[in-house]
Design a binder for these strands. Structure first.
Lengths: 172, 172
DNA sequence: GGCATATATTTGCATTTACAAATATTGTGA
DNA sequence: TCACAATATTTGTAAATGCAAATATATGCC
């Protein structure tokens, strides 16, 4: 006896995944035109927002696995998009990642494309709807992250035992 | 001069990706407990919803690339979750995929877990908020898919030149 | 100060993924 | 009915992914 309370079209993870995949598909061509992969774009966007950041903070902001991110940063260094260095005075376990001038320039060419994509995605939305949607997505993320933290302790998305990365320039 | 109109925390693809990744991370353990991968679960859920389906329709419903899906189906057949067969009388290019009894049983054990996850994700949401969120995600998907179709013609997410798969039992 | 433990990043490795090419079958027009 | 284009699926292959182990550094305790 199937519980008919389960309808894919009303199942949040399904709806979210579908939107995520479609957005990636739509942005792919613009990224390709700039010779930037999706993950690289995410890193660039994070750095634009937060300034120079440590590797683990970029991982947590971008939702990229930290080992994948390490390799992505290799590629980005090769392309001259970012540089890595140890902090001058502080904790030498840490690696600071910073966008180069070129990386910043590439980011600035992509940002308008990203905004265009968002505009497309939100066609027909009132300003109120748009902010309601975004606010709800923030709440959903918080709910799921909190749940993850309560359970596995580390199977969770928010891998920050320090402090949630500010996303406000905290370089130094 | 950075256009300060671009804020990650208000950028829809960022918010959506973050939620998608967190949901996957939260569901992972339950899938592992049933020895089912994420993609396999998506296929099972699609079949539960739509009954026996052709490969390409499963791909479009699940947002799984069709070549990846083909291999996923191999694994699922090996595990006894689904069977593939050519349709009796119809178009012999097509392959019909059907859940086995075992596949159906596994699905039914996962569905309540999936519902629990959704409940967690939507904690604190009123019924109205919940349906508003889902309805907006449907609209966003439609917007992006329409845009994709208009452009690349095939770089689009909705790969269905036939007819949008019903998601309502259309087997036969 | 020195050793055990904790934190940060990278690397090893097997699996997964997606693009493109190959294969199989159908539909169409001469 | 014979080529030829269209559709559906699978397979070849190189790159991306994520887990776990390895490495590097830091911190706390005695």
């Amino acid at each position: 006896m199937k519980s008919r309370r389960f309808d894919l079209e009303r199942f949040l993870p399904y709806l979210v995944n579908r939107v995520a995949v479609s957005l990636v598909g739509a942005f792919g061509p613009m990224l390709a035109a700039s010779d930037v992969t999706l993950q690289e774009w995410r890193v660039l966007a994070a750095l634009r927002q937060g300034g120079a950041m440590r590797v683990s903070d970029i991982a947590s902001v971008t939702s990229i696995d930290i080992s994948t991110l390490s390799r992505t940063l290799n590629a980005m260094e090769r392309k001259g998009l970012v540089v890595r260095h140890r902090p001058k005075g502080g904790d030498a376990r840490v690696v600071i990642v910073e966008a180069t001038e070129h990386g910043g320039a590439v980011t600035e060419t992509l940002v308008p494309e990203a905004q265009k994509l968002q505009t497309t995605a939100l066609a027909g939305f009132s300003a109120e709807e748009e902010s309601a949607l975004k606010a709800m997505l923030v709440r959903v993320f918080a709910n799921v992250a909190a749940q993850g933290k309560r359970n596995g302790g580390d199977a969770a998305p928010a891998r920050a035992p320090r402090s949630p990365p500010t996303l406000a320039s905290d370089r130094g």
